[in-house]
Design a protein around this nucleic acid. Structure first.
Lengths: 114, 114
DNA sequence: CTCATGGTTCCAAATCTTTCGAACCATATC
DNA sequence: GATATGGTTCGAAAGATTTGGAACCATGAG
């Protein structure tokens, strides 16, 4: 059974359903360089929050958590418990369904100097 | 001679050059419902600021001007003097060159309820 | 069970954005 | 030239977002 098939309620933090995604909120979530950096990092596959370079240096826990929250609440990312860590997964299919081509366009752009 | 061919310095307000466009700034400019509304309105062709529905109701001049400014400074829009008015023009080619597919993806989405 | 780790929540401070009045500027029309 | 119109700029107030410390929670490892 795949995590995608679980009802969203099964996860311990609230995630918007696909139909609830709002374009302006998604654009806002992606409009911050650090958050966009996280998204780029998990584009190739899910990644533990603790392993994200964009979150690592010396950023306090609460700040990192807040960044993940903005991505989660906008529906860009799914955050699932994974042992002691949290796995961040890009909600590719949901985003593609609601906003076709958007993610590819955003990720397709060379990352520097954003 | 086309406005597109003029050096940016020829316009009375500063516009970033194509190479200077920054993805996160563009996304931020588009992440506000009113500003996105303006962009949708000028997607089919340039439009006078004064004719934009998104700006019309009872919004004070200074507020409207500020909204146009955010779009202009991020490079989403070119604002050219046009008689007494100002013509807003979507910087399609520049955006397409820097962020291929982004604008289509953003505009392709049904506008409601964003 | 105990501890370390990774993360969340709550809260307050700092920062950034938005809003809008007032003053001002430019163009078009009379 | 005078006036009306559409817009900019400035500055201040209101509102949102971001940052980070402290307390807390859950899981995995010992």
């Amino acid at each position: 059974m795949n995590i995608e098939d679980l009802p969203l309620e099964a996860l311990d933090l609230p995630h918007p359903a696909r139909e609830e995604l709002v374009l302006t909120q998604v654009l806002f979530a992606l409009s911050d360089p650090t958050r966009l950096g996280i998204v780029r990092e998990i584009a190739a596959g899910p990644k533990e929050m603790a392993a994200c370079d964009a979150l690592r240096p010396d950023i306090p826990k609460s700040t990192r958590s807040h960044m993940a929250k903005v991505l989660r609440e906008s529906g860009v990312v799914r955050s699932e418990p994974h042992g002691r860590c949290r796995l961040l997964r890009l909600r590719r299919e949901d985003l593609e369904a609601r906003f076709p081509g958007l993610l590819d366009a955003v990720l397709g752009t060379a990352s520097a100097p954003d």
